[in-house]
Structures are given as C-alpha cells and as structure tokens.
C-alpha cells in the first residue's frame, strides 16, 4: 500500500485500515500474536474496574499499549452521560485522546441509541476528544454525527458480537457515498470477504473483533482479515468496474467464418 494512502484520523496516520478489537480472545498470548499478525496500528479497549483483590492481570497483559494508537470505547454506557464519564476516565489514563462512543439503547439487541450517541458525540467533541461514534446504519444519523464533529463514523454491519456479516449493503454504501468524514464499518463482520466487500465500496476502514477472536485460529484469521482489507482497499482505489446486464467480454469482430461443409 502506498505510504500516502494512510488513514488520517485525529492527527494520526494509520498505515493499516484494520482496527483490531481486543475482547473475547482465548488468551492474552493469542491476542498479542493476532494483533501482530494483523498489522493493525489501532486497537480498541474497554474501561473497567481494576480487580483490587486477587489476580489483577487483564487480557492486555503483555501488550505494549504505547506502541499502538488506542481507541478506548464507552461500552457499557446506556446514556450520553455514562458515555461521557467513561470517555473522561479513558482519557485520564493519558494514553489516548481517541474515544469510540458506544451507547447501547437496548440490551437484547445491543443496537445503539442514536439520540444518546449524537448527544455524547457533541459533548465529547466539545471536550476535545477525537470522537468515533459507533452508530446504526442510518444515513441521516451519519451526516448528523459528521456535522457534530465526529472524526469518523462507525456504522455497524450487524449487531455487536455477532458474525452476521453485512445485513444492509444498500445503507452502508449510501453512508459511504454521502458521509463527509471517513466511514469505518464496525460490528458483525464475520469473514474476510465481508471486510473486503465494504472496503471495495470505499469504507475507510473496518473494526473486527469477534470474527478474529472466535475463529478456529485467531492468529491466522487476523492475517486473513489484514489481506482482505488491503485487497478491498486496492480494489476501491483501482475503481470498480460496473456494467448492468450481459455484454460479451471478448471481441465480436474478427470471428473466423463458420465452417462450411463441402
């Protein structure tokens, strides 16, 4: 990938357009090797209470957080208020000004609450965060989030934690086409071809967690996603061919004359 094709977000240049989740991996060791194999330069994190009694180690043990651009999330928030609090806690760790706003509106589907997501985005942009809101695949909402100052918008391909792939290709393509800020497709991408597909459409990047973490061999799958994201991006930059209906791919001229039985 050409050096000047880096994804620029909040003053950071990301050579890899694959953002790597860090949840639900079988072990800290597998997580570390998967991130390395993916070539990702940005990883997501959550903010949670430190276990003061007993084992304090988290799955991030052994990962040098300073060698990545960190994208902490506000997972667990159900209101703008809670998202703002989690964002402030995340920034106070002094490792990142980025925040992935996640405000879940409903616990069974884990689908985002668009009103609270927008409210949190407005407030956190005002506080100087680089805000990447996770959003439903709604064009108007994406435009409102961009107008509110989001550095990128992150529409979900499918519900959080699922491997259902791209449920609404039409909406995602519309968002990619209309949104003035980078669109990073988040949640639900199951297999590398899902990632390649949205990248071909012009997504600026993808965030993958479950598709890698729950694969048979997460390290190999991280490598596969990395290749797919790069392929999809190259295809997008190359310009996709688009022809409706049948048309011969071979010349219609110059056919040898039909054999005539003498």
């Amino acid at each position: 990938m050409a050096e000047d094709d880096a994804l620029k977000l909040g003053g950071v240049r990301l050579g890899s357009r694959l953002i790597h989740g860090t949840g639900k991996f079988p072990s800290a060791d597998v997580l570390g090797r998967a991130i390395s194999a993916s070539g990702a330069q940005m990883i997501t994190l959550a903010v949670r209470r430190l276990h003061l009694d007993g084992d304090r180690r988290s799955e991030l043990e052994g990962i040098d957080l300073t060698s990545y651009t960190l994208l902490p999330n506000t997972a667990g928030a159900t209101s703008a208020e809670e998202a703002v609090r989690l964002a402030r806690l995340a920034r106070a760790a002094k490792l990142s000004d980025f925040i992935k706003v996640e405000v879940v509106g409903e616990q069974e589907t884990l689908l985002p609450d668009p009103i609270e997501t927008l409210e949190a985005t407005v407030r956190l942009v005002a506080e100087g965060f680089t805000v990447l809101p996770y959003a439903s695949d709604d064009v108007s909402l994406a435009l409102r989030l961009a107008a509110a100052g989001a550095a990128a918008v992150m529409p979900g391909a499918a519900p959080i934690g699922s491997t259902m792939g791209v449920l609404n290709p039409h909406n995602l393509r519309l968002i990619i086409a209309k949104c003035p800020v980078p669109v990073i497709v988040d949640a639900g991408l199951a297999v590398p071809s899902d990632a390649a597909r949205v990248m071909e459409w012009g997504a600026a990047g993808v965030l993958v967690n479950t598709g890698i973490a729950r694969a048979g061999d997460p390290v190999a799958m991280a490598r596969a996603f990395s290749a797919a994201v790069a392929a999809g991006r190259s295809a997008h930059l190359a310009g996709l061919a688009h022809v409706e209906g049948a048309a011969p791919s071979s010349p219609t001229e110059g056919m040898p004359s039909a054999l005539v039985r003498l």
Partner: peptide, 13 residues
C-alpha cells in the same frame, strides 16, 4: 472511589 484501567474490548465491552 472508582479505580479503573483498560481491559480487552471491541464493541459492547
């Protein structure tokens, strides 16, 4: 007091 740190997470914690 709340004492927090980063843990693994992607979407939905």
């Amino acid at each position: 007091l709340e004492v927090v740190h980063f843990v693994g997470g992607g979407c939905g914690g």
